[in-house]
């Protein structure tokens, strides 16, 4: 009868177990603190938080969910990278394979896509909540600024991903989007005052974005590198700063 509890005791008191888990699970105040501060991930949180900050009706949990969606996208994105090659001759076929051949490929691609849309929505709702609680007021001004940059990065992440399937939808959407760059004042060849800097289709800002005058292989590669490496790295760095600042600014905002 006592085999099971004994076994558990043996395991949890072994040297190996204790080298991994530093403290027990008894529900004491001390353990609740240790639970947070001895765990590198949970340590993002302070050991104690103001109660209203844990209320869903205060934060709507939107910042947290945005972050979670970012993690979700990172994982599904890495899995997609195993199957997808950013080559104009292969990209579309890889998509079709994902939808019909790769085990769980359809679920993988669908959830990556819908997760990206969801993230755009949650980040904008998060911004709305931060505005409505006036949480950008001193001392949190700069965290709002970081947030705005994160908002833009979230949109760019989603936008760069749009081209990757290399289908009509993405191709023409990116065409419409990048055509705007042509019209950039001074820097786009169709923009106002472009003649001052001598802008032409093959040296303006759109050319720099696409790596060409048309959306071709270099544009696909650029979208891919921005989407899978550059923007995620920048966004991660800024998210770290964002979370760090929340604590340095005195934790979640609330009535004094």
């Amino acid at each position: 009868m006592k085999i099971f509890p004994n076994l558990i005791k043996k395991i949890t008191e072994s040297e190996i177990w204790k080298s991994v888990f530093r403290h027990g699970y008894a529900d004491t105040s001390r353990n609740r603190v240790l639970q947070i501060i001895s765990n590198v991930w949970l340590h993002l949180h302070p050991a104690k938080v103001r109660e209203h900050g844990t209320k869903i009706r205060f934060t709507w949990c939107m910042g947290g969910i945005t972050f979670f969606l970012f993690l979700f996208e990172t994982i599904t994105g890495i899995l997609l990278m195993f199957y997808y090659v950013p080559d104009v001759n292969r990209a579309y076929a890889d998509m079709v394979d994902l939808m019909y051949v790769v085990p769980f490929g359809r679920l993988l691609r669908n959830s990556h896509r819908w997760g990206a849309h969801a993230m755009v929505i949650t980040v904008s709702v998060h911004m709305l909540r931060v505005f409505l609680t006036g949480s950008y007021k001193p001392p949190r001004q700069f965290n709002w600024v970081l947030g705005v940059v994160l908002l833009v990065l979230t949109l760019l992440l989603s936008f760069t991903g749009y081209l990757l399937p290399w289908d009509q939808l993405g191709y023409w959407a990116i065409t419409v989007g990048t055509n705007m760059a042509r019209a950039t004042p001074l820097l786009g060849h169709e923009g106002p005052f472009a003649y001052i800097l001598g802008m032409k289709p093959d040296n303006d800002i759109r050319f720099a974005l696409l790596g060409g005058t048309l959306i071709e292989a270099p544009a696909l590669l650029r979208a891919y590198v921005w989407h899978c490496i550059a923007i995620p790295v920048i966004a991660s760095a800024l998210m770290m700063a964002h979370f760090w600042r929340i604590r340095k600014d005195g934790g979640i905002s609330g009535p004094l």
Binding site: L107, N110, S111, W114, V120, Q168, Y171
Partner: peptide
């Protein structure tokens, strides 16, 4: 998210064709 992804497929149209513009050609919704 998984439930939604199970019942609704992400869009995938024909292979891109620079010679045939979508009409209307729309940017991503946001």
């Amino acid at each position: 998210l998984l439930f939604y992804s199970y019942i609704v497929d992400a869009p995938l149209r024909e292979l891109s064709n620079p010679g045939q513009a979508e009409n209307p050609a729309k940017a991503p919704w946001y």
